[in-house]
């Protein structure tokens, strides 16, 4: 279980990094925390010619919140750093989601953006980023572009990024007031790969749901939104609409069975995680009323 031979560079700028990726002709990989990449190298599921390590590039560990409640994370921000920030700021959705990722030691090194780029259909941040309107800043040899997270995932472990592109930061729009957000997950055991998970953000207008955003993991080839659930909830009286809305999730999913959970089991627990996420989001939204 030792990695294959590869060459290595730790450039000082994004520009150098994208140039190196470009010159490798797609046979190099970006290294951030390595918590997904190194196991794949150890099993020799990947044999890249080179790894381009982002660790020396300035600014990639920053976490900044602007006046419009947009949170920007650099590519080297670890699960742990975001978890700690979110915990200090009372950002429940982020705190909930981070707690499901592996264990403490993995979270100390693994990065949020690395997880997104790995595009594991069961990775927690995928759903969180979809619910919070995540936008990736993508650098490539031709310059920078913005890519909404809904356009990032193309299939299990695959993204729309070109071989020479790097996600340098992710911007999340934190929930406005009167909005509660929560995350719920079913895994064989806590910390195991998710069988089904849901992130939900619910905005209230009096007793009714003004708008709801729900995103799922483990229930389709990629993390995905749950438009049927969102539509069913929208405008409904919050306290009565949740169960029915959760049932609507069956229209939004196309689960793939594996050793962690069969397709049938994933279908079975999908409404459960949606309802649980919605219920705690709702409680939080009610608590968030001015």
């Amino acid at each position: 279980m030792k990695p294959p031979r590869f060459s290595y560079a730790a450039p000082a700028t994004v520009r150098e990094a994208t140039d190196l990726l470009d010159s490798s002709g797609g046979r190099a990989r970006v290294l951030a925390g390595g918590q997904s990449l190194i196991p794949m190298l150890r099993h020799r599921l990947l044999e890249p010619e080179a790894l381009i390590d982002l660790r020396r590039i300035d600014g990639l560990r920053d976490i900044c919140l602007d006046d419009a409640r947009r949170l920007r994370l650099g590519a080297m921000v670890t699960h742990h750093a975001l978890q700690r920030w979110a915990s200090d700021q009372g950002q429940d959705l982020l705190v909930d989601a981070a707690a499901h990722i592996g264990h403490h030691s993995v979270r100390a090194i693994g990065t949020v953006i690395g997880s997104l780029a790995h595009a594991d259909p069961s990775a927690e941040w995928g759903a969180v980023a979809l619910v919070l309107d995540g936008v990736c800043r993508v650098a490539g040899p031709g310059g920078e572009r913005e890519l909404g997270v809904e356009g990032l995932f193309t299939g299990p472990y695959s993204t729309s990024l070109a071989g020479s592109e790097i996600i340098t930061s992710l911007t999340l729009s934190l929930p406005p007031s009167c909005t509660g957000a929560a995350f719920s997950e079913v895994a064989p055991r806590p910390g195991d790969p998710a069988v089904a998970g849901a992130a939900a953000a619910v905005s209230l207008d009096g007793p009714c749901v003004e708008s709801a955003r729900v995103a799922l993991i483990g229930l389709a080839p990629t993390p995905c939104r749950a438009p049927s659930v969102e539509a069913a909830l929208s405008g409904s009286e919050a306290s009565v609409g949740i169960e029915a809305a959760a049932q609507a999730v069956e229209n939004d999913i196309a689960p793939i069975g594996d050793i962690h959970g069969s397709e049938e089991y994933r279908r079975r627990v999908a409404p459960v995680v949606v309802a649980r996420a919605l219920r705690s989001a709702l409680v939080r939204a009610e608590g968030d009323r001015p």
Partner: peptide, 27 residues
């Protein structure tokens, strides 16, 4: 396990517990 699950290789990396089986020396 060499996969970051068992923790028998845990070290402190800048003070944080980390599984040294999932870190390249160059990192």
């Amino acid at each position: 396990c060499e996969e970051g699950i068992c923790g028998a290789c845990t070290v402190l990396l800048d003070g944080e517990p980390s599984t040294s089986c999932l870190i390249l020396a160059v990192q």
